[in-house]
Design a protein around this nucleic acid. Structure first.
Lengths: 222, 222
DNA sequence: TCATTTCGGTTGTTATTACAACATTTCGAA
DNA sequence: TTCGAAATGTTGTAATAACAACCGAAATGA
């Protein structure tokens, strides 16, 4: 377990917690580690979740199956990633996706109720843990809300302007870098890459914005 | 304040809390009520939020402005609605939307840190409050994730099947009712209503599904 | 009951997008 | 520097969607 301390320290759940405290906390939370071989179910769709998972080593895939059994990979779980928090918070709803190991894995499971319930005054760190958990979920919330706003626009042009406008406001400047290359941006907005490039050209030609590589400038209305 | 007890009881924040307890809690949390006239800022974009808001009476609009100053209404805040939770959790990030009263309003503000920090053993209800807050945010998270999965599909057909498949799995049956009429479903998926109807017809003709009003049946693969 | 409105489906036209194929630029490694 | 690979931009075409206009059925309510 000791060996995974660096991973734990970097995880969103334990940010701001001193290494020596983490040790005490794991005891207090009766955390349990479990080993998985490749291609085992870590969480099975339909389960009722009472623990959050924290990937210590190895990788897993979050997978969803539709009515006809077609599988979609929702995301990858890398070391240090917290997963299943949402369904741990909503323990009355069965989880609608599976987590399957993609290599040998060590996973730490933390009982959700123990995180919530303050045990003794000595465990003051509970507050911090709860804060981190809330931040983690709220952060994802924010990410999703933003992406949704862009994606709910009808045309590629509107999606682009919605995204770039948000980036501009976030950075509080009309000139800014974006963290995506063209293909990544296209994937993020669920559009075609070449159509994206094309629309960018048009926007530039019309004087609505200008760009060079990943650096964009939005123009004030004339 | 007394008059608003029914509203508070119905709010997601106080579910599971006894009416007499709510009274004590409000004191303990040093909740403060504020009155707004129509068209006043309840929360201003760029603010750093440290309290969650709970609408007691009246309605407000959550509004966003883009780079060019174009306004979009994100949602409506009705009595009993909790708002600004996400940014209260992420207090280091300035809020990117404004809340503006759409009529005379009474709003209850609850200090976020006081909700998180357990004060005395007598205030055991903190745990419940935190649980409710987590559930609220996690619930929205789930809603957003689902919608995102449907919306990120490229064609209307794929969006529809993604949505219907999810509904089917949620209800654990291949025949189920959906809570939307055609226009609402189209709005939810950000597509055109007539195009939606059209695609439904085709899907039925192809024997992939059948429907009658809001009742749908998905067919097994032949 | 009848009148009216709302809702869902259909069709044709136009606009937008995806896709493929290819050109150009950029960048890093040999 | 030169070469090759990856990223980005451009263009044409086919597929798809939005939009408008319309019809009929169902719901509503006077």
């Amino acid at each position: 377990m000791e060996e995974y301390l660096p991973i734990l320290r970097k995880s969103s759940l334990f940010t701001g917690v001193r290494p020596d405290e983490i040790h005490v906390m794991l005891k207090c939370l009766s955390a349990r580690m479990k080993h998985f071989k490749k291609d085992e179910f870590i969480i099975r769709s339909g389960d009722y979740i009472r623990s959050v998972g924290l990937m210590l080593s190895g990788t897993a895939l979050i997978i969803q199956e539709d009515f006809w059994g077609r599988r979609t990979i929702i995301s990858e779980v890398l070391p240090g990633t917290l997963f299943a928090e949402t369904f741990a918070c909503l323990s009355s709803i069965p989880i609608e996706m599976s987590v399957v190991s993609d290599s040998e894995c060590d996973v730490l499971f933390l009982d959700f109720n123990k995180i919530l319930t303050v045990c003794t005054s000595a465990c003051s760190f509970h507050t911090r843990l709860i804060q981190n958990l809330l931040s983690s979920i709220a952060g994802r919330n924010l990410t999703l809300t933003k992406k949704m706003q862009h994606m709910s626009q009808k045309t590629i042009r509107e999606k682009l302007l919605s995204y770039l406008s948000a980036e501009s406001l976030k950075n509080n400047t009309s000139t800014f870098d974006i963290p995506f290359n063209r293909q990544q941006l296209a994937d993020y907005l669920s559009i075609d890459r070449s159509a994206l490039s094309n629309e960018l050209s048009k926007l530039q030609a019309e004087g609505i914005l200008s760009y060079k590589k990943n650096c964009f400038t939005l123009m004030e209305e004339t």
